[in-house]
Write a protein that binds this DNA or RNA. Structure first.
Length: 379
RNA sequence: UCCUCCUUAGCUCAGUUGGUUAGAGCAUCUGACUGUUAAUCAGAGGGUCAUCCGUUCAAGUCGGAUAGGGGGAG
C-alpha cells in the first residue's frame, strides 16, 4: 500500500517556516499542524464530534503502552482497529511508549532487548521490544506509527546521551526490519516515523539526524526535547535537527509545547506538534487565549460575562462567558473541564492555522513576534 | 422573667488534665504542569480565641459580669 505523501507548498521568506500537506488514507493534514493527545483512545474530556466540529482537529494521537494495557489488543483487533473502536475517522498517530521509558522511569527497566514496564494499573510486567512495539502499533492501526526509542532526561550528560542514542538507533533498525515484514492492517496505509535523539549535544544530534534520515521513511521526528532542558537549549537543538533533516518530509517535534514554543519551532522548520498542555492545563484552570493566559479560577472573572475568546474560530469559545466557565470550574462541574479543554485545543488549532496563513501571506515573522508577546501575557 | 447551651480565620468547625509559634476543610491568592500514572500537585496570606474584670508563674481552656445567638420553662 502506498505510504503517506508530503507536499511542501510554501516556504517562508524570512524564517525557516514552511507550509505543506500530508495525505493519509484517513484524510489530509495541512501543516503546520497541532495534534491533540488522546492517550487511551480519548482526548480527555472531549468527544470525537467536538474534536471534528469545534476543535477542527485533523489528526489525533494514541499511545501504545496505554492502549496495550487497556483495552488490550484483543479488543482493539476485534473492533477493527482504533479508528473504528473510538469512532474517529481522521488520521491517528500512535506514540510508541518511548516517552513512558522517561515518564515511568520508576517502574521500568531498560536492556538491549527492550524495556520491561510494570503496569501502573495492576503491577504486572510487560516487555516492550522494538518488534513487539511494531506489532502492537500495527494492531492499533494508526496511520503513523512511531519507532520505539529511549527518551533520556533533559540534563543527561554526554556519555549517557550517546549510549542512549546508540541504543535508540539499534532499536530503530529492529523497528524498520519488523515493520517492513508485516502488512498494513484494516485496509489503510501505516507509516513508520523514526525519532532523533542525542540530548542537548550537537554532534550527537547531527549523527542521529543522519542515521534516521538514511532510513528514508515518510516522516521524521525530533524526540528528547522539553524534558527538563532550558527553553533556549530546546530551540537550539530543534533548529539544528531541522537543518539536518530532509526538507521533503514532514518534521515532527514530539511533546512541544506552549503556544509560543510552537510559534518559535514553526519558524525553525517544524511541521507537526503534539502536547498534553492544552488539555491537562485546561483541566487545571489555565486557559490559553488570543489575548493572553487566564487562570479561570481567579475571582476577577466572577462577573466577566465576555466570551472566553472571541478572537478564534470556535463556537464554544465564542459562546460561553468567562464568568460561566469560572462558575463551572469552581463548582467542579464536568462541563467545565470539557469547555476548557475544547477551548484550549481550538486555540492551539488557531495557532497553527493562522501560522499557515501567515506563511502563505508573507507576514509570518512579524505576526509571530507580536503574537508571541501577546499570548504570554498573564491576564 | 428564669434555666440552659453556644460565641475560635471570609464560611463551617477541631482545640487533651490550663503549658512552645492556636489547627483543619472550604474560600482567597501564587506557583508548577510540554511524545498524560495528573479533573493533579506544591505553597502563601488570613485569627485582640465576642467584650471586660478576675484566679494563676502561665488562660482559647477556670470563675464572674456584659453583649449577641440557639433551645427550654413560665
Amino acid at each position: 500500500m502506498a505510504s503517506l505523501k508530503f507536499e511542501l507548498q510554501h516556504n517562508c521568506s524570512t524564517t525557516k517556516a514552511r507550509a505543506g500537506k500530508i495525505t493519509t488514507d484517513h484524510g489530509e493534514i495541512l501543516t503546520p499542524i497541532f495534534m491533540p493527545v488522546g492517550t487511551v483512545g480519548s482526548v480527555k474530556a472531549v468527544t470525537q464530534q467536538q474534536l471534528e466540529n469545534d476543535v477542527k482537529a485533523q489528526i489525533i494521537l494514541g499511545n501504545t503502552y496505554h492502549l496495550y494495557l487497556r483495552p488490550g489488543l484483543e479488543t482493539l483487533e476485534a473492533a477493527g482497529g482504533l479508528h473504528r473502536f473510538m469512532g474517529w475517522n481522521g488520521p491517528i498517530l500512535t506514540d510508541s511508549g518511548g516517552f513512558q521509558v522517561f515518564s515511568l522511569s520508576g517502574t521500568r527497566k531498560i536492556s538491549e532487548e527492550g524495556a520491561v514496564f510494570q503496569s501502573h494499573i495492576d503491577g504486572s510486567k510487560h516487555l516492550f521490544s522494538p518488534e513487539i512495539v511494531m506489532d502492537i502499533q500495527r494492531i492499533i492501526g494508526g496511520d503513523i506509527m512511531m519507532a520505539f526509542d529511549e527518551c533520556p532526561p533533559g540534563g543527561s550528560e554526554y556519555n549517557y546521551a550517546k549510549t542512549s542514542m546508540e541504543l535508540t538507533h539499534r532499536w530503530l533498525d529492529r523497528c524498520v526490519n519488523r515493520f517492513t515484514k508485516i502488512e498494513d492492517r484494516y485496509g489503510h496505509s501505516q507509516n513508520l516515523f523514526p525519532i532523533v535523539q542525542g540530548g542537548v549535544h550537537h554532534d550527537l544530534r547531527k549523527i542521529s539526524c543522519e542515521c534516521i534520515s538514511s532510513k528514508d521513511l515518510p516522516g521524521n521526528a525530533i524526540g528528547g526535547l522539553s524534558v527538563g532542558e532550558p527553553t533556549e537549549k530546546m530551540y537550539e537543538i530543534c533548529e539544528l535537527c531541522c537543518d539536518h533533516l530532509p526538507t521533503d518530509k514532514p518534521r515532527y517535534l514530539m511533546g512541544v509545547g506552549t503556544p509560543w514554543n510552537i510559534l518559535e519551532c514553526i519558524s525553525l522548520g517544524v511541521d507537526m506538534f503534539d502536547c498534553v498542555m492544552p488539555t491537562r492545563n485546561g483541566r487545571n484552570a489555565m486557559l490559553f487565549t488570543s489575548n493572553g493566559v487566564i487562570n479561570i479560577d481567579n475571582k476577577k472573572w466572577e462577573k466577566d460575562f465576555s466570551p472566553i475568546d472571541d478572537g478564534i474560530d470556535c463556537e464554544i469559545s465564542n459562546h460561553y462567558s468567562k464568568a460561566y466557565l469560572r462558575h463551572l470550574v469552581k463548582s467542579k462541574e464536568i462541563l467545565g473541564l470539557q469547555i476548557a479543554s475544547i477551548h484550549n485545543l481550538a486555540f492551539y488549532q488557531h495557532i497553527v492555522t493562522q501560522s499557515r496563513k501567515e506563511i502563505f501571506g508573507g507576514n509570518f515573522s512579524l505576526w509571530k513576534s507580536q503574537m508571541s508577546a501577546r499570548w504570554q501575557q498573564r491576564l
